[in-house]
Design a protein around this nucleic acid. Structure first.
Lengths: 200, 200
DNA sequence: CCTACCGATCGGTAGG
DNA sequence: CCTACCGATCGGTAGG
């Protein structure tokens, strides 16, 4: 599917509706109504409702992946700095596109089985970045002796939980939020008395 | 509606399906099939699909509320001990009924508007317990100077995030998990150099 | 708890 | 992008 303006508008309207009502709770006609066209007219631009979900989820997955890689590369190998960079980056991606991020977090289960399997793999690889860096910090003694799987799940679900409450333009901006979440996450895993490694 | 065995079985099957596919993604016939009866036969026991969702969500809400109150009362007024008790309690409620807990966390949005409003109010009151105790700790200087709203959201979404990955009978039991999550949460908010207040 | 059935809505196609 | 339409499925009711 070529990427047209209309196509982008459909994805945007769908993201908003999928966030509010879920994929199953949103009909093709709901999406069309948001764009003031007929339900059947959507199919001039997309091949299926499932494809719209896929492009939303896939786009966000790629964004999380590439920007995590960039954030990681920007800070050197210190586990504390690495974790802070991953957390800050994640918050910034979420706040930058809260609707697609929400769909990414909650609706990937509605993907058809092949795509769902691919996404499960990519999500797992993403979570592994957190596990690995936490394990490294724990081994180095700079982090408390936490179970890296539990700690990574804890931090990552806290980050993803943002999609449930964050609204753009609110009291707290993305940068402040990124710092707060990084502070909370660093403290959660740091050994007592350690000085937190700040963001890059 | 009287609480019969059959009624309980329906709620159980529905919890499992709602968790897997969401409320909108689950049909009345899906629930019936899980119980080896006809779709229409369900209506001998429930008045609507919506009522099944409500009883699941309401039951869990009450469980979270009453057991948080009990946990809070069991530990004295020290903010650190209070927060640890709230976290431990939450983890234990979630792990004790992971399927209903998952529906409670994710599907309350599918409630009809009146019930949804009530649940929003009760969820907010529950979150306020966390905010209040965090604010008290921050004021007392035992917690780091975090924004209580942000910190409470962080901790509570991490706790609720358990429904996405926890499976009963796994490597880590509920008690160990409750301790781990309490440790992570305490460290996240404690001021540097403070000795964590343990669970009750 | 069953059979038989209801109107409404679903995702999607045909053919312009 | 529209009208007209498809078969399938939806939540729920009637009447046993």
């Amino acid at each position: 599917m070529v990427e047209t303006t209309r196509r982008r508008e459909i994805e945007e309207a769908a993201s908003s509706l999928f966030r509010e009502r879920g994929y199953s709770g949103t009909s093709v006609r709901d999406i069309a109504r948001a764009l003031d066209i007929q339900g059947a007219s959507l199919y001039a631009h997309v091949t299926s409702k499932q494809d719209v979900l896929w492009s939303i989820v896939e786009r966000m997955a790629t964004r999380f992946e590439t920007s995590a890689t960039a954030a990681s590369a920007a800070v050197g190998s210190d586990p504390a700095a690495q974790l802070a960079a991953l957390v800050r980056n994640h918050v910034l991606v979420v706040t930058d596109d809260i609707e697609r991020a929400s769909v990414f977090v909650h609706e990937w289960r509605a993907l058809s089985s092949e795509r769902r399997t691919e996404m499960a793999r990519r999500r797992d690889a993403y979570e592994r970045r957190f596990r690995t860096v936490i394990a490294a910090g724990t081994d180095a003694g700079v982090f408390a002796p936490v179970d890296p799987n539990v700690a990574a799940a804890y931090v990552l679900t806290a980050l993803n939980g943002m999609v449930a409450w964050y609204r753009p333009g609110g009291r707290i901006g993305p940068e402040v939020l990124a710092d707060s979440y990084a502070d909370l996450s660093m403290r959660a895993v740091l050994a007592k008395g350690t000085v937190p490694g700040g963001p890059a």
